[in-house]
Amino acid sequence: MSKPEPGSSRIVVPRSMSRPRLMSRRRLLTSVPALGGLLATGCADALVPPTVRGGLIGAADVLTMSTTRWLMADQPLAREYERSDIAPDFPTWGQTNPDNEDYQRHLSEGFVNWSLPVNGLVGRPRAFSLDELRQLPSRTQITAHVCEQGWSAIGEWIGAPLTQVLEAAGGVSPEARYVVFNAMDRWYESIDMFDVVHPQTILAYGLNGDELPVGNGAPLRLRVERQCGYKNIKFLKSIDVVDSLVGFGRGTGGLSSDFGFHWYGGV
């Protein structure tokens, strides 16, 4: 176990992102030319879930999300560990091998014909093959997978930062509020721009020096390190950049939240 190295604990993302309540879109867009307009609205989105449930539970959801997001206003990294901390046997959970035809065909072909369409509010909607994703700048991170069920395990993930993928698709338009991830096991989840722009949010194609195992979501899974396991969706099929979550499942922004979990998995 170790602390992140000096210099890596503060990130390159927007100081302006550090005051979600105060920043204006204009200021945001002009202050981060490096992200080429990748950032969008998302100021109130960072504090309040897309659909607020009724009653006390909904009030608690808002308190939880706005409190943690306020505490993370300077976009801290989730802790990164040493190689020696890596779990001897990284566990698999939930769906470990989708038994639908499409997935099994891609698996038997070694995912050479698999590709990831990136659609919606991006400059140039396109699909990425696994090789194309590997050619993008990559990030390697040794982090703890924190399952909402109670277990945690440390693994070394390698993948393309989501911002790199979106940039390669022409950047996102200013109306974009959420990124929706659709999976080959018919699962879906979404995250807001606060997590989209975070450097540890990557599309991982490797675990512990190998290709991503089937049980851990081959060929590609989301790592969103400051949220619980259920948001780290596996077996990615496509990505949609959207301004509204209506039209996906029941419209709550994820299959788990359609079931009744809180959409925001920070706690």
Binding site: T68, L71, M72, A78, V146, E225, R226, Q227, G266, V267
Partner: peptide
């Protein structure tokens, strides 16, 4: 135990 609080 919460990943967001542990990051903050």
């Amino acid at each position: 135990q919460a990943p967001a609080f542990a990051a903050a």
